[in-house]
C-alpha cells in the first residue's frame, strides 16, 4: 500500500519541495519527519492515514515510525479538525484569571466543548498547556495568533471576526 502510485501522488510538488528543503538540514531522514508532517498539516488541516503514508513514503521512513511521532505530538492532528482551531490555555496562570469562563463561553457560543469540532466544520476547540502568555491571561490562540487577556465579551468579538464571520 505504501508504495502505490496513489499515496505518492497525494503530495503536491510544492509540498515535496518544502519537505526536501527541510530534510536537507538534518543528517537523517527521521529528524525532519515531524516538520514534514507540519508542512502538510498546515495546508491540509490534518493528517489522514493516506497523507501519513504519503509523507512516510516521500521521507523514506516506515509509516509506523512516522505515526509514532504523529500521535505523540498534541499539535499534529490525526483526526479532522475545523477550518479554525482555537487553543484554550488550561494551565495555572490562565486558570487563576478565569480561563474556565472563556471555556464556558466557547461552549455556549459554539455548542462545543474542549476537544470537539462544530457540526458545520468551522471550528475545533482544544485545551492546550500554558501558551507562554501568562501576563496576558486568560489567553487563547486562534489559528496562529495569540489573544489575551480576554473577557467573555472580547472573546465573542474575536469569534465573530475570525471564526464565524457572520455565521451567527
Amino acid at each position: 500500500m505504501r508504495n502505490d502510485e496513489h499515496s505518492r501522488s497525494i503530495l503536491t510538488e510544492e509540498e515535496k519541495d518544502m519537505i526536501d528543503e527541510e530534510l536537507s538540514h538534518y543528517p537523517t531522514k527521521q529528524a525532519g519527519a515531524v516538520e514534514a508532517l507540519m508542512i502538510v498539516q498546515r495546508r491540509r488541516g490534518w493528517i489522514s492515514d493516506e497523507l501519513l503514508l504519503a509523507v512516510a513514503d516521500h521521507v523514506g521512513i516506515a509509516p509506523a515510525e512516522l505515526d509514532r511521532s504523529a500521535t505523540f505530538y498534541n499539535l499534529i492532528f490525526r483526526q479532522p479538525v475545523g477550518q479554525h482551531v482555537v487553543l484554550v490555555c488550561d494551565s495555572v496562570s490562565c486558570w487563576l484569571m478565569g480561563a474556565d469562563r472563556l471555556r464556558k463561553r466557547l461552549q455556549s457560543c459554539l455548542g462545543i466543548g474542549a476537544g470537539e469540532t462544530s457540526a458545520d466544520g468551522r471550528v475545533t476547540v482544544l485545551p492546550n498547556v500554558c501558551l507562554g502568555a501568562c501576563d496576558r491571561a486568560p489567553a487563547v490562540m486562534i489559528d496562529e495568533t495569540l489573544h489575551g487577556p480576554l473577557t467573555e465579551h472580547e472573546l465573542d468579538r474575536l469569534l465573530d471576526s475570525h471564526v464565524l464571520q457572520g455565521a451567527r
Binding site: S91, V92, S93, V129, C130, G132, A133, C134, D135
Partner: peptide, 9 residues
C-alpha cells in the same frame, strides 16, 4: 512550556 513561564518569549 513550564506553566507560568513566558520570559524566553
Amino acid at each position: 512550556m513550564e506553566p507560568g513561564s513566558f520570559k524566553d518569549r
